[in-house]
Amino acid sequence: MARLRIGILSAAHVHAPAYLALLARMEDVALAGVWDEDPVLARERAHAVGTVAAATPAGLLAESDAIVIAGVNRDHRALAEQAAAAGVHVLCEKPLATSAADARAIIDACRRAGVLLMTAFPSPWNSVVEALISAVREGQVGEVVSLEGVNTGEMPDVHGAWFVDPALAGGGAVTDHVVHLADLYRRIVRSEVVEVYAVANRILQEGFDRVETGGLVALRFRNGVFATIDCSWSKPRSWPTWGGLSIEVLGTGGAIAADAFRQRLDLWGRREDGASWRSFGSDANAAMLRAFVDAVRTGGEPPVTGEDGLRAVEIVEAAYRSIATGAPVRLDPPG
């Protein structure tokens, strides 16, 4: 079986090195190279895993069967359209785009070109989340009534200044964190979001006010389930890890709470370092990349589609409209 040639198209995202390292270890994958508008970064990322830096996106696409887009959020559309035009399959970092219009354009471009499009939401492969979804499917909580989720973390400027630049990221904490839980909720509830209410502020992370750092989002699903998401960058620099993701599902049979990153060791070293948490949970990124490669090989529907990415972006867009107006915003997605 020929190895699937996969390139990384823009490496600005914090996940790019992890994706490269994981792809490099997959026996049926050959790294095609790395392109980034910063050639120094491209070389650094490429050399770390023994692949090449490409001079242009076109050059990389010519050598790739599939690519992972790990650029700044604003560039997802242009890069995905280029890849689709070159007949290359796409795994696109989340959020799929900075607007629903861009997300739809990506979906259309890939469909027209007949290439596979998957949105890079790793959380469905988090093994704690999988266990939660199984428990709900088995009916352990009875009929689902309500979901409460927290996906909070440090301010991500430590992973790249663009994360907190609204022109490049598309927004702040709401853009950064809402999509993960919005997508997981759709998988748990198996219904679509028809109403979004959100509030936000810029109090957290003293001295920074370019984008919202705190946010709370309330969702209502077509089947009557209601839910909330805390997406705040509320963890200070002294927090023992980057942040976390947890979901509590409440139903007629009681409640189940899942902490996706609770599989950890508590580590104390030098006094000045404080405590840190080291995860021993299964690598969700590895399973997500495996699923992408398998979908490309079999030509099947990827487990996280472009439409899934679009639905999450629509929810983010509605959240910003709600923040601006102070009122709930209605959505009417198909399904």
Partner: peptide, 17 residues
Amino acid sequence: SAANERPELGVEHALAI
């Protein structure tokens, strides 16, 4: 609140912002 969204379930649970 569940009492308003799904009164038939007899569940008392609410989230407020």
